[in-house]
């Protein structure tokens, strides 16, 4: 196993400890939770976790200048990054959660409130099976139709070419996006038991 330098971006509101627990379980030892520019520069791969409201998360990223630091690493240096939940949503151009707010603008698309048929509760909480459009790289170890844990009220609305997996909750919901070195998942792999651990393994092995 290649010991990658993994950095989980710490911006105050993510569930960083949960993500770190899951990755450590897989045996990766050079793992850091940090907001330090130097540490982020030296990393092989970045994880942008997320639990929280879009505006609060973006504000925290901007306050600590992480938006520019990450932009440089991801867009210019092409460092692989995996965004989780709000971490993925922040990769969009903007979001309509608590008013219109600008995102990191890495993947063309916007974050919208789930607009569901009657009898479908918001937030979309629980285990849902995903339909995988692109196996490589992050889903290469997962079975078709496997379950992941979702917990969100907003979703990433984008062009189909970026969607690597989706799920069905009355409407088709983007479950994962990818574009070059940028990956994002709406569900929580750190909370999806074995399926989530497999996803982390596939992601790290592809680097």
């Amino acid at each position: 196993m290649k010991q990658l330098k993994i950095v989980i971006i710490d911006y105050g509101v993510g569930n960083t400890h949960s993500v770190s627990n899951a990755i450590k379980h897989l045996g990766y030892k050079q793992l850091k939770i940090s907001d330090n520019e130097q540490t982020i520069k030296e990393a092989d791969v970045l994880i942008l976790p997320g639990v929280g409201a879009f505006d609060e998360c973006m504000k925290n990223l901007k306050d600590s200048h992480l938006d520019t630091i990450l932009g440089e690493q991801v867009l210019e240096n092409k460092k692989p990054i995996l965004g989780i939940c709000v971490g993925m949503q922040m990769m969009a151009e903007f979001s309509e959660e608590n008013g219109i707010h600008q995102g990191l603008n890495w993947i063309h698309g916007m974050v919208k409130k789930l607009d569901l048929p009657k009898n479908f509760a918001v937030p979309h909480v629980g285990w849902n099976n995903v339909t995988i459009e692109h196996n490589e790289p992050i889903f290469s170890r997962n079975d078709e139709n496997c379950n992941f844990y979702f917990d969100h009220s907003y979703y990433f609305h984008c062009n189909e070419e970026y969607v690597s997996a989706w799920c069905d909750y009355g409407v088709k919901i983007t479950a994962a996006v990818q574009q070059d070195n940028i990956f994002g998942v709406q569900f929580h792999p750190e909370k999806s038991q074995t399926n989530g651990l497999k996803l982390f393994r596939s992601f790290f092995n592809s680097i």
């Binding site: 509101v13 639990v51 929280g52 409201a53 609060e56 709000v86 608590n98 937030p123 909480v125 917990d151 969100h152 009220s153």
Partner: peptide, 8 residues
């Protein structure tokens, strides 16, 4: 709910 999201 405002800081961490309703889902939390």
């Amino acid at each position: 709910a405002h800081i961490f999201g309703n889902q939390c």
